[in-house]
Amino acid sequence: MAPTASASVRRTLTLAKALNTGLLEAMKADPKTVIMGEDVGKLGGVFRITDGLQELFGEERVIDTPLAESAIVGTAIGLAMRGFRPVCEIQFDGFVYPAFDQIVSQLAKLHYRSGGRIRLPVTIRIPYGGGIGAVEHHSESPEAYFCHTAGLRVVTCSSPADAHLMIQQAVASDDPVIFLEPKRRYWEKGEVDTTPLADLPADLRTDLGTSRVVRSGQDATLVAYGPMVRTCLDAADVATEEDGRSLEVIDLRSLSPLDLDPVVESTRRTGRLVAVHEAPSNVSLSSEIAARVTEQAFYHLESPVLRVTGFDTPYPPARLEDHYLPDVDRILDAVDRTFGY
């Protein structure tokens, strides 16, 4: 099933297929774009995100690399210095750490060190998060490490439409981008506008850094990203049915830099904010959100900003992950608690 070129049409795609189609557009848009990673060629990646791309663009542009993550990122930096636009695939979240030095000390810093002379338009795609019953190291949420590092953009999509758009924006960005893919949502379908990036209006082309209200509500605000957006939307449905509460849900989309204006604005209206993610809570995205929203919306808050997150333990064995991961019950429990202050 080779990918097909797409004109401006709306199609129903899985999130995985939307990424595949977005990558296809990125490859067409710039002949300097190269895809590199373990098993990305003939196999099309273990999640088939690069399916059919080697067939279309050849082994020079879709590169099955030796099994070495540090080298995937390190050589991508060199390729970028030579004018290429590498899109690296790290096979699973837990395997990005061998590349940690290349990402945080090299990729993130060269623009700064070179006084802006060096630009490294490198995208690092990482399937992340749990909920798929996997063995160790296949379910982690490493976003905070990268958000803590100046010089990197960190983004994540939650829907097929965003997957298609954001992967193209990430590849087009002249800054390094950590592109986190919510692997448990790969198979969920949604409508996608397959207009290539270049044909979109300018504001849509460059909105990679913006967060978005994905459901409006008045009583409390949920802020999430990636895989937890769906869970928050489900929680909002239940809250309407069972408690008659209307919850607003905001998808951050960009984790670094953060676009918190919509969150602050929403929290000022609802007075209650619950931040949700799979990653552990200690020094996490939700820590940052709570601090900043408290600074900016203090007099509007009816309750402290509460957090529903993975626990501060290693990711547990698969049979325990349902206890570990935030779910509708835990989210609604937190919402209830915001009404108890």
Binding site: G133, V135, E136, P316, A318, R319
Partner: peptide
């Protein structure tokens, strides 16, 4: 148990002279 997801490594490496499985390659 590892592949079922009930544990991350249930044997005692010292008892068996056999370390835990290593999934992070190398």
């Amino acid at each position: 148990g590892l592949f079922r997801g009930t544990s991350l490594g249930a044997w005692d490496p010292a008892e068996h002279g056999f370390a835990l499985y290593a999934i992070v390659v190398g």
